[in-house]
Amino acid sequence: VYKEIAITNGCINRMSKEELRAKLSEFKLETRGVKDVLKKRLKNYYKKQK
């Protein structure tokens, strides 16, 4: 499980701001904020899904 999260986090870290926004809107999450906030939001979402 932790390895999956680590791989997902690595992918998220390599995403551009536009990619992050697209992914967040896909999951109907808030898309406003600076890049670091968007990354954190997406990581938290994936963590809750596990």
Rank of each mutant, 00 (worst) to 15 (best):
V1E: 14
V1C: 12
Y2C: 14
Y2M: 14
Y2W: 12
Y2P: 15
Y2E: 15
K3F: 07
K3H: 13
E4D: 14
I5L: 13
I5M: 15
I5W: 09
A6F: 12
A6N: 14
A6Y: 14
A6W: 08
T8Q: 09
T8D: 08
T8A: 10
N9R: 15
N9W: 07
N9H: 12
N9P: 14
G10N: 10
G10A: 11
G10D: 10
G10L: 06
G10C: 08
G10V: 08
C11K: 13
C11G: 13
C11T: 14
I12D: 00
I12F: 03
N13V: 03
N13S: 08
N13Q: 04
N13I: 04
N13H: 04
N13A: 05
R14I: 03
M15E: 00
M15F: 05
M15L: 07
M15C: 02
S16Y: 05
S16D: 07
K17P: 02
E18Y: 09
E18W: 11
E18G: 14
E18V: 15
E18S: 15
E18R: 15
E18Q: 15
E19M: 09
E19V: 06
E19P: 00
E19Q: 14
E19W: 03
L20K: 01
L20F: 05
R21N: 02
R21V: 09
A22C: 13
A22S: 13
A22W: 09
K23V: 09
K23M: 09
L24G: 00
L24K: 00
L24M: 05
L24Y: 01
L24C: 13
S25I: 07
S25G: 13
S25L: 12
S25E: 11
S25K: 14
E26A: 09
E26S: 09
E26R: 05
F27C: 15
K28W: 02
K28H: 13
K28S: 13
K28G: 15
L29N: 02
L29V: 05
L29I: 07
E30A: 05
E30N: 10
E30T: 04
E30I: 03
E30S: 10
E30F: 05
E30P: 08
T31Q: 10
T31C: 13
T31M: 08
T31D: 06
T31P: 11
R32G: 06
R32Q: 06
G33E: 02
G33D: 04
G33A: 02
V34D: 07
V34G: 09
V34S: 11
K35L: 03
K35F: 02
K35C: 04
D36C: 09
D36G: 08
L38N: 01
L38I: 05
K39H: 00
K40D: 03
K40F: 00
K40P: 01
K40M: 04
R41C: 00
R41K: 01
R41D: 00
R41V: 00
R41M: 02
R41A: 01
L42V: 03
L42S: 05
L42N: 01
L42E: 01
L42Q: 01
K43G: 02
K43Q: 05
K43D: 03
K43W: 04
N44T: 12
N44Y: 08
N44K: 15
N44F: 07
N44P: 03
N44M: 10
N44R: 14
N44D: 10
Y45F: 12
Y45I: 04
Y46H: 09
K47H: 06
K47R: 11
K47W: 04
K47F: 04
K48A: 09
Q49N: 12
Q49W: 09
Q49E: 09
K50Q: 11
